[in-house]
Nucleic acid binder design. Structure first.
Lengths: 183, 183
DNA sequence: GGTTGCATGTAAATGGTTACATGATTGT
DNA sequence: ACAATCATGTAACCATTTACATGCAACC
């Protein structure tokens, strides 16, 4: 999904500036779903206006650069729904955390311990923020996605909490216990 | 995590050719964890050899180009552990599926239904393959990561199975039921 | 006085995917 | 016949990240 479609989706949620769209991808509806940086958002918004898929109104502000508020047009909404109808590309995941974990046996147990604790804390924090946001006035689909995210993060946090000690014991066990058993 | 570290990790698992490394990221230990394409693997392997982090042996084959089998060197192992010790970058997820789902209320229920069914089938298929692979001779950390992946996919599949009908009813309900209730 | 948040945009550099180029074997 | 698997590698293209450029307000 290209930056243009991503911005179109953001504008469908509500009128916004480039800066505000970035926040939607960082902390808002689209966090944990997709990424978008200034370097991709601003050029995409310009192209969207060029193609008549969005319109732009400059809102003068005191002591700050004009805020450019973008709105999706009818043509833009059509383009969005068109893009949404295409078969989704497979999810792309890049997790340094999991890659590191695979080689846990090469690392000091203290690092693994910290790594996993930090991950659990991150999940718990994300879960809290996902529960706190009020979706009662959002469409059922937004609540559905929120629920899915929470179910997945809860499962991950619980697995890590339950299985962490077992891993740490096994990692050390692989080095220490066998030689003892041979005594 | 750059392509070089990714390849170093693959070679730590076992000697391999570029072609085999790609398979590790598609169906092997690293599937669902990270991506790697030929265009990033082959140049990375060349650089790894240049820097003395890997060595390469050409295995002549009949009727096929020589298979170049790469091995990690001691220096390479040091470089890998060094990279593994750095704080992991945050996970990067790009899910067209979730992005589309957020706008479920703009789409025909039949499309949502299909989309979710396909997703459930994908999770079930992945879960089957993740259970089938024999990890009894792999380090505990590999089993731990496998278990985490399965816990997460199971949670996602179960959520979708349980909640799908509710979503479809709500999407249609938003259009149909309220007018009935007002009768 | 330093950091964070607001607010926009561009340019350079990096990095990665896709497509191309080649070609035999095996299975449908 | 055609697709898939095996096998390597390059080049063009695309995208993203990072840094630069600017500047005020609010908070600590």
């Amino acid at each position: 999904m290209d930056a243009k479609t991503l911005c179109l989706g953001a504008l469908q949620v509500g009128d916004a500036s480039g800066y505000e769209i970035k926040k939607l991808f960082e902390e808002g509806v689209f966090s944990h779903i997709h990424e978008a940086s200034f370097g991709s958002i601003y050029p995409a918004l310009t192209r969207l206006v060029d193609e008549g898929l969005a319109s732009c109104t400059a809102m003068p502000q005191d002591k700050r650069p004009d805020k450019k508020v973008y709105s999706i047009t009818d043509k833009g909404r059509e383009a969005l729904v068109g893009a949404l109808r295409l078969a989704p590309a497979p999810d792309k995941v890049r997790s340094d955390f999991l890659f590191i974990l695979v080689f846990g046996h090469l690392l000091p147990a203290s690092q693994l311990d910290r790594l996993i604790d930090q991950r659990i804390a991150w999940y718990r924090d994300s879960l809290r923020r996902m529960s706190e946001c009020d979706l009662s006035h959002k469409p059922a689909s937004a609540r559905f996605v929120n629920g899915l995210g929470r179910a997945v993060y809860r499962a991950a946090a619980e697995y890590l909490e339950l299985q962490k000690e077992g891993l740490l014991a096994n990692i050390e066990g692989a080095m220490v216990v066998p030689s003892r058993a041979a005594e």
